[in-house]
């Protein structure tokens, strides 16, 4: 059974007269698989990530999402996180006044508690942080700074991947984690994702991206193209190259054909 099974998912902005953004998404992600969703701005890629993570500003109007055999849509955002879903934000939020170390320890312990595991004390947490730093080769200088505050775009994205490593999810959703990064930062982020994937063969990754560039470093098992709230084409990693080469027009033409 797939880890994540999305069927005919429709979602709209949760407000009176809110626009429908997802118009019937079907997607199946197995354990250990790396999927990439590509598409233009406004195609619904980020909305899909947010809906999967439990954002209440979107309302699911139709369809089902099954995660690990359970109805994901019944769960709150924090329950999903505790059950192993992690969203790396496109725009990580700054939280002045809360230290990164406190924030991360609270996250790790909320998840551990939920799983019936012993909460980590300060020393154990510090050990975990050091392990993950070593794993990712990331110098973690900001544990004692406020969450994301004053971080550059690259630092924020790196911090997202680092958080993912620390909370150790089953399914990582990376929402345009590559956008706005220079090539060096991109390599650091991609290397982190690869390490996490290698470390746990069951861990699945869903990358949402504009560009093929990231896929040079993180090789996906499947590539999907999203247009106007639907996945219109799926294929292997070659599909990304074709999109890079030919753009989305040929698919848009295909998508607008009546089924």
């Amino acid at each position: 059974m797939a880890l994540l099974e999305i069927q005919n998912l429709h979602a709209r902005v949760a407000a009176a007269g809110g626009r429908e953004i997802l118009k019937g998404v079907n997607l199946s992600i197995g354990r250990g698989e790396v999927h990439a969703i590509m598409g233009k701005n406004g195609s619904g890629k980020s909305t899909l990530c947010q809906v999967l993570a439990g954002r209440e500003t979107y309302e699911v109007t139709q369809g089902t999402v099954t995660y690990n055999g359970r109805d994901l849509l019944e769960e709150s955002a924090e329950e999903r996180a505790r059950d192993g879903i992690f969203l790396a934000f496109q725009y990580p939020v700054e939280i002045p006044g809360v230290s990164t170390s406190y924030f991360l320890k609270a996250a790790v312990n909320a998840i551990r508690k939920h799983r019936g595991e012993q909460e980590l004390d300060a020393m154990q947490f510090l050990k975990l942080v050091k392990e993950k730093q070593a794993l990712l080769g990331i110098e973690q200088s900001f544990m004692n700074r406020a969450v994301n505050e004053g971080f550059s775009g690259g630092e924020k994205k790196r911090n997202e991947v680092f958080q993912m490593a620390v909370v150790n999810p089953m399914l990582g959703l990376l929402d345009e984690t590559d956008s706005g990064l220079d090539i060096d930062a991109l390599k650091v982020v991609a290397n982190g994702v690869n390490k996490l994937h290698q470390q746990d063969k069951d861990r699945a990754i869903l990358l949402v991206t504009h560009y093929q560039r990231l896929l040079n470093y993180v090789v996906p098992d499947f590539v999907h193209v999203m247009i106007d709230g639907r996945i219109v084409k799926s294929g292997g990693k070659d599909l990304a190259l074709k999109l890079e080469d030919q753009g989305y027009e040929w698919l848009e033409a295909e998508a607008s054909q009546p089924a």
Partner: peptide
């Protein structure tokens, strides 16, 4: 609410 959501996606409960 953006900050609340960010924390919740990290497993921190709504009230917390």
């Amino acid at each position: 609410e953006d900050m609340v959501f960010y924390l919740r996606t990290r497993g921190v409960g709504l009230d917390a």
